[in-house]
Simulated scan of single mutants.
Amino acid sequence: MTNSASALVLDDHPLSASGIADFLLSHCGFGTARSVSNVAEFWVALDPAKPLSLAVVDFWLPDGASLSLLVELKQRCPTTRLLAISADDDAAVLDKVRLAGADGFLHKQESPEVFGRAVAALLQGDSWFHGGVKFAGREFPNKELPVTAAELGLTARQGQVLAMMLKGLPNKRIALNLSLSEQTVKEHVTGILERLDVRNRIEVITKLRGRRLE
């Protein structure tokens, strides 16, 4: 791929959006990749006169599902390849984004390598709707090495936050599940990134590949 490829990432969690944009630049050969955290910023950043090569859009946004955005984006920029992502385990999500005009769907629990292959497929004109999106009850291979929060230098609470990060849950969902404020969750996420010596969630997933957090 030449570095003329351009991308725009929409995820209402800036850390995730920035991590995906950085990955597109560093591992997928993109020349430009911007990240935005809300729909208004997305439309401002979009220039129909300079169509994007790829748009990565989170399925769930604060105002609800991004289906109407996907439909409008496909109408405005028919040549832009659309990749929807989500941490939702509902199998219906895949069909919904396909009908809305997405060219591919990827669960946030997939590995960076799979993300890279999906992006490459979309840029080649193919679609990416491989497999199902049901991750609940998924069995991890026995070769995965179990690791505890303490072994990673994390507190028990940070371990709980990390486990949910690895499932692709946003800060709001983590805060709700652990009965914490969103600000406290953000502080835990910052501490986890510092302890693991990584910059974003994508790098967390990459670093812990082959390990199972217990």
Rank of each mutant, 00 (worst) to 15 (best):
R81H: 12
D63H: 11
L69S: 11
R76Q: 15
D58M: 02
S53Y: 08
K50T: 14
K74R: 14
F59G: 01
E72K: 11
L61G: 02
V57L: 15
V57N: 06
A84I: 01
V57C: 10
R76D: 13
A84G: 00
G64P: 02
L52Q: 06
A65E: 15
Q75N: 05
P78T: 06
Q75M: 08
F59C: 00
V56Q: 05
K74E: 00
S68N: 10
L52N: 03
D58S: 09
S53M: 08
L52E: 04
T80Q: 02
L61D: 05
L83W: 11
L70V: 15
E72R: 11
W60L: 15
L54M: 07
T79C: 06
L70D: 12
V57R: 03
S68K: 09
Q75C: 03
V71T: 12
D58I: 08
W60R: 15
V57Y: 04
L69Q: 13
S68W: 03
L67E: 14
T80K: 01
P62E: 08
L73W: 00
P62G: 07
L67M: 13
A84F: 00
K74W: 02
K50G: 13
C77F: 04
S68E: 14
S66C: 10
L82W: 03
L82T: 01
A84V: 06
L61W: 05
L83S: 09
A65L: 14
L67H: 10
L70E: 11
P78E: 07
L69E: 15
S66D: 09
G64L: 06
L82V: 05
S68A: 14
A65I: 08
C77I: 06
V56M: 11
S68V: 09
C77K: 01
P78Q: 07
S68F: 07
F59A: 02
D63S: 13
L54T: 05
L73A: 03
P78V: 04
L61H: 03
L69H: 11
P51N: 09
Q75A: 12
F59M: 02
L67G: 13
S68L: 11
L67D: 14
V56C: 12
S66F: 03
V56F: 09
P62N: 05
L73G: 01
R81G: 02
W60Q: 15
P62L: 05
L83H: 08
P51G: 08
F59Q: 00
L69P: 03
L61T: 01
D63G: 12
V57I: 15
Q75F: 06
G64K: 10
L52I: 00
L73Y: 01
S66W: 00
K50A: 15
F59E: 04
L82N: 00
P51V: 09
V56L: 12
V56P: 07
L70S: 10
L73V: 04
P51Q: 09
E72D: 12
S68M: 07
C77E: 14
S68Q: 11
V56N: 07
L82I: 12
L61K: 01
E72A: 11
V56S: 07
L54D: 11
V71H: 13
L82P: 03
D63N: 13
L61E: 04
A55K: 09
A65F: 12
G64Y: 09
V71M: 10
A65M: 14
T80E: 00
